[in-house]
Write a protein that binds this DNA or RNA. Structure first.
Length: 567
RNA sequence: UGGGGCGUCGCCAAGCGGUAAGGCAUCGGACUCUGACUCCGAUAUUCCUAGGUUCGAAUCCUAGCGCCCCAGCCA
């Protein structure tokens, strides 16, 4: 109970504030997150989770987790487990309020008989095909089912026999008696119960009739004392039915509020499409780091904090929108910049030999772990005569403003010395640069007498004899469409018969021969680092082991040089 | 030609009759032993269009236009 309404941050909070004023729910705020356990949660669900749990928390209210398990044909325990893990990982708690719509099956049944007694529901024997024909079209009214005026006694008898398994699947349904001529298709005597012999993961074979969403949802909300039942826009047309059910039953009435679901550029967000990617092998699973699923983002290296921040920044409204994935990337960079320790890793190694450095000498250099946070301490990095630098950091014929290594050019090695490129060895057949020879300025070591010299470029590097070889996986967008410059095309491609035509064949690039600084040897699975000048990387939760490290690139650092080169 | 929604900067999004917040992106510049971070500055005389009401409109009225959703015994 709050006495000072919050400054509304979105239209739903504004409604809550109004409800406080009118004392609609006695000052209570009670929401729920009601996933159907038929797939993995994705970033779109995260928006809903943050909204529901967030609104409850900010208004000193409660939020339930409720599985909408009314269709056993599609639902599996694997999904209920993953959903709970994901919600928890995102940082939300439902305490002891974990519910299942199936908890209420007896109650639903009882209420249904009540509707029949009130003359508001009837058993209909029309086939699915016939029902479709009787329903009419968007512009023409439907016509009454010939079974619409059965007696209450007959309906009661038939419904009970439906429950008792006396009729085959699909042979009859229980329907609400509303209005076959309603301009709202949802109100044309919608089905409330169907006969379906499917084993339910929680109720087993107790039932052979299962309630429909439109019937089960309002009652579940009512039973749980939900105040604000938040759902997505496509249910707007269902709101009159939601209200009708509760009104007909004369039970407590929550209010349904709809908001626009999240769409993200360069990816897909429907469970159907995500499942296709998984089942047809486009990705390795629901948790493939390219997937916009919570488990995929987690494996990629995203933090719950970044995802929550993202959900706050995108806002909540009713207009269909597609958020630029760049905002998500911004959120994880901002979070990891402050938290991730730095390390040096070379993805595409090029040998550098410091000709005037003693062959058998090894120095232990000190490097800060995070310049943003001195309290994160320092670590030791070995330096020796032979190093690896990034192939991209050397150029035989450098373009203007190339502040990296090139013949005759000087560059600073991070935490170490200033070196100068004297010569290089090139494979004349392939044109590949094989090694680069340099000399170093002995006094230029970090902290040394000539270290303050102005040098434009600083490179990351790894001591060759000390380097740890590792695999690094670079990810790009799932869909290659550039919806920014050509939104129409993107939508067409994505919605085409086969959105997979837009699948980005370069969405995964594996680099097996990367060289890491030795401090990374004990990187724990899931630990995140900023590889200097490259981006943020996360030791893979599944494939990385001490003997064979595997890092995923969470997101690259912003790169104004690359951008300038392109433009 | 039915019903329900939505239309404010490239992408999100505030605004609710008093003279266009903020974020992302973009473009300049400063700083820099990460071309990162940070910092400074720029960026809608205009709110889908056209009329109208008003001293005053993105906000009210009228008429259009555009986009999304609905004809599952899915959710």
């Amino acid at each position: 109970m709050t006495t000072n309404p919050l400054q509304p941050t979105n239209f739903i909070q504004a409604i809550i504030n109004e409800d406080y004023k009118s004392n609609k729910y006695g000052g209570r705020v009670h929401t729920r997150f009601p996933p159907e356990p038929n797939g993995y949660l994705h970033i779109g669900h995260a928006k809903s989770i943050c909204l529901n749990f967030g609104l409850a928390a900010e208004n000193q209210g409660l939020c339930n987790l409720r599985f909408d398990d009314t269709n056993p044909a599609k639902e599996e325990v694997e999904y209920v487990d993953s959903i709970q893990a994901d919600v928890r990982w995102l940082g939300f708690s439902w305490d002891d309020r974990l519910f299942y719509a199936s908890d209420y099956f007896d109650q639903f049944y009882h209420y249904a008989t009540q509707l029949i007694r009130a003359g508001k529901a009837y058993v209909c024997d029309l086939t699915a095909q016939q029902m479709r024909e009787y329903r009419g079209t968007l512009t023409e009214p439907g016509k009454d089912s010939p079974y619409r005026n059965r007696s209450i006694e007959e309906n009661l008898d038939l419904f009970e026999r439906m429950k008792n398994g006396e009729f085959p699947d699909g042979s009859r349904v229980l329907r609400a008696k509303i209005d076959m001529a309603s301009p709202n298709m949802t109100m044309r005597d919608p089905a409330l119960y169907r006969i379906l012999r499917a084993h339910h993961q929680r109720t087993g074979d107790k039932w052979c009739i299962y309630p429909m969403y439109d019937y089960a949802h309002p009652i579940s909300d009512s039973i749980e004392g939900i105040t604000h039942s938040i759902c997505t826009l496509e249910f707007e047309d269902h709101r009159p039915l939601y209200d009708w059910v509760l009104e007909a039953l004369q039970i407590y009435r929550p209010q349904q509020i709809e908001f626009a679901r999240l769409n993200l550029t360069n990816t897909v967000m429907s469970k159907r499409k995500l499942r296709e990617l998984v089942e047809q092998g486009f990705v390795s699973g629901w948790d493939d780091p390219r997937m916009p699923t919570i488990s995929g983002l987690r494996r990629r290296g995203y933090t719950p904090e970044a995802i929550r921040d993202f959900c706050e920044r995108i806002g909540v409204a009713k207009s269909n929108s597609t958020v630029d994935v760049g905002l998500l990337e911004h959120c994880i960079r901002e979070d990891l910049n402050l938290r991730a320790p730095r390390a040096m890793a070379v993805l595409n190694p090029l040998k550098v030999i410091i000709d005037n450095y003693p062959a058998d000498q090894v120095e232990e250099l000190t490097a800060e772990n995070n310049p943003e946070k001195p309290e994160m301490g320092t670590r030791i990095i070995p330096f020796s005569r032979e190093l690896f630098i990034e192939k991209d950091d050397f150029c035989e014929n450098p373009p203007k403003k190339f502040f990296r290594l090139a013949p005759g050019q000087e560059v600073r090695l991070k935490h170490a010395y200033i070196i100068k490129c004297e010569s290089f060895v090139k494979d004349e057949q392939t044109g590949e640069i094989l090694e680069v020879h340099c000399t170093y300025d002995e006094g230029s070591k970090t902290g040394g007498p000539t270290s303050a010299r102005k040098i434009k470029g600083t490179l990351h590097w790894v001591s060759a004899p000390h380097a740890i070889q590792a695999e690094v996986r670079l990810y790009d967008y799932l869909l290659a469409t550039d919806s920014q410059s050509n939104p129409e095309d993107a939508i067409e491609t994505e919605e085409a018969n086969d959105f997979k035509d837009a699948f980005n064949p370069k969405s995964l690039e594996r680099l097996a021969n990367c060289m890491l600084e030795p401090s990374l040897q004990n990187a724990a699975c899931g630990s995140r680092y900023q590889f200097l000048r490259l981006g943020y990387f996360c030791a893979d939760l599944i494939d990385s082991t001490a003997g064979s490290l595997v890092f995923n690139r969470v997101v690259g650092l912003r790169d104004s040089w690359a951008k300038a080169q392109k433009g």
